[in-house]
Structure formats: structure tokens, C-alpha cells
Design a protein around this nucleic acid. Sequence first.
DNA 1: AAATCAATCAACCGCTAAAAT
DNA 2: AATTTTAGCGGTTGATTGATT
Length: 326
Amino acid sequence: MMRRPDTANSTAPPSKNGVTVHNKLRKGLWSPEEDDKLMTYMMTNGQGCWTDVARNAGLQRCGKSCRLRWINYLRPDLKRGAFSIEEEELIIHLHSILGNRWSQIAARLPGRTDNEIKNFWNSTIKKRLKNSSKPSSSTHDQAPSDANKELLMEDIMFMRLNSSSSSSSSSMQAFTMNTNYNLVPFPDTISNDCFLNNISSSLAHDHAMYDDANAHGIITMGEGLMVEEGYDHYFVPPLESASQEENGTNLDYAYQNYSRNINEINSNMINLNVHHDTKNIIKGSNLVGSHEMWEEGHEKMKVGEWSLEDLIEDVSSFPLLDFQVE
DNA sequence: AAATCAATCAACCGCTAAAAT
DNA sequence: AATTTTAGCGGTTGATTGATT
């Protein structure tokens, strides 16, 4: 399914339909070399002006293209692989309320991009909902029911509490699980130099450590990849499978591993009892802390009183939704 | 075996809003 | 205050690939 990048190397002039274009910027699929350049640049310099990134990273790309590539593919906190059932349900719920506001929906699905959610919707969900004789939740110009809003809230909380690519705020830590695994809080912004440098320096050890850990079958908090300094500790558990298809540079490989590990934490979280415990906490309306903090600035509205506008406006202020890149 | 169709999804485009100059 | 630049969004395209004829 992967399209092959332009066969020309990264310094060659761009072409479309075999016709050379007369500006010097490349378009189309990204080559592994270009990915390397962008990744390396982002890891060492962090996020800045995208036209500067394009220029300084030695890429014959416009800033817009670099931004897109980073956001949708290279970002280390991205989930990969198919959407889970939970995610799918949440997408449907959110779409019933938010409509085609893909970025708003993505903001509530940690590690997922607006683009992939949009693609997923257009290629899969839309069709499925169409076939099922219940178009109710698929039309966005319809007012959501109170029940839907309740479900939405519940799902949002659930997803957040089970998310690893989340905030480093202490409110999340309160829900850390009592297992060998710990949450891996991401810093508030991935542009943070410290964080990127830490990751960078750790990547070299990444591969070997996981192979070793997998060989032993078990890993505890004392093993695996630890990233510290400046933030809490970030623990990256072992890969569940060492099946690494395709080649790629070491950088690619390490980063893929990193992303995959993040995903594994997510699935680990779900595999534990967290799922039900968390839901019970929420259902018992005993959820304090973040939720109430959030309500403070919002005149303590009841769920049934939420409006679409509230939902949209509050994305950035919702305390459990702060994983978004600033 | 070849041609056609359909699905997927990475990347583009045009636009708007926000930020910078 | 006006203009330019940048970031971000959603719609759309089209290359690739797998399924079907």
C-alpha cells in the first residue's frame, strides 16, 4: 500500500507526469532519506517556523509539506495501525456531535491525526453507517441527544485515562496503574528541546534493549528505555514482537520502535483492569480533579447542557486533552 | 494472463485565521 | 494600520494495490 517515492533522488528537480517542473521544490511522496533529514532536524532543533525547517534541514520541500509529513507521519507520539473498537466508537460519537471537524475529533483521540480519521471515516465508517439502517449517528446536522453527550463524555474520559501520549500533568499520574508498567507522559509540547534531545540520545540504546527484554519475556520498571531529566521518567516497555519488516535507516527503525512502544503501552493499559475501573469511577460520578477543574471555568454545567459550541471552544482548555501540539 | 474495478490513504490544494513585520 | 507570512483546516486527488471479471 505504500507508494514508492519519486525515483529521483532528493536533490533532483521535481516532476509530475514525467514533466519536469521549473521550481526547485519537490512534491509527492517522501523518500526515506527525506524522512531522515526531517526527523533528524526535528529531533535536534525542535519545532519552529516550517519554512526554516524546510530550508535548514536541507530539504527541497516547502514548509507546508514538512509540517504535514511531521504531523501525520513522523511525530513520535503517533499511534500506528488500525483503529481499535473503542476508537472507532468514539469517532462515530464525536462525529455525530462535531460533524466533519476532523481536527476537533483528532484532538480527542490521542496519537491519531485528523487526516487518518478523515480517511478512515470516508473509506470505512461512512459506508458502514450507510449500509446499516441506522443513519442516526452519522448525520452531523442533527442535534445530539443528551444520552449521546453522556456517552461522549464517558468515552473522552476513558480514552484519556488510557492514553499514554498524554499530558505530563499530575492529574494523569493519579490514574497510574499498579503494574510493572507506568504511564508514559509526554511533555506538553514536542517542540521541547530537552525532550527531543533525550529521545535522541536514547535511541541508540533502544534496539538492543528491547531485543534483550523480549528475550527474557518480562520487563520491569527497572529495564527498558528510561528517559528522564527535565520531566518525569518516561518508560518505554519492550516490543511485543520483533518482526520488523523492511529495511530503513537506524533512525527510522528506532523511531518506529519508539512509536510502537507507545502503542503497546496503550494496549497494555486496556488489557489491564483499568478499563472497567476507570469507567466505574466515571459512572459513579466520583471523578474529581481534572473534571472539576475544568468545570470551574465553565459555571459547572451539567452534561446535558453542553452545546456544540462549548465542546469546540473547550478543546484546548479541557485538562485531559492537552496532548495537542501547541 | 490481462484488464478492469474499487478501496485506501499520503499528500496536495485552496482557503481562513493568526502572527509577524 | 496595512501588508505579508505562517499555521492549520477540510476537501479532494491520484498512485498504488488487491480483488474481481
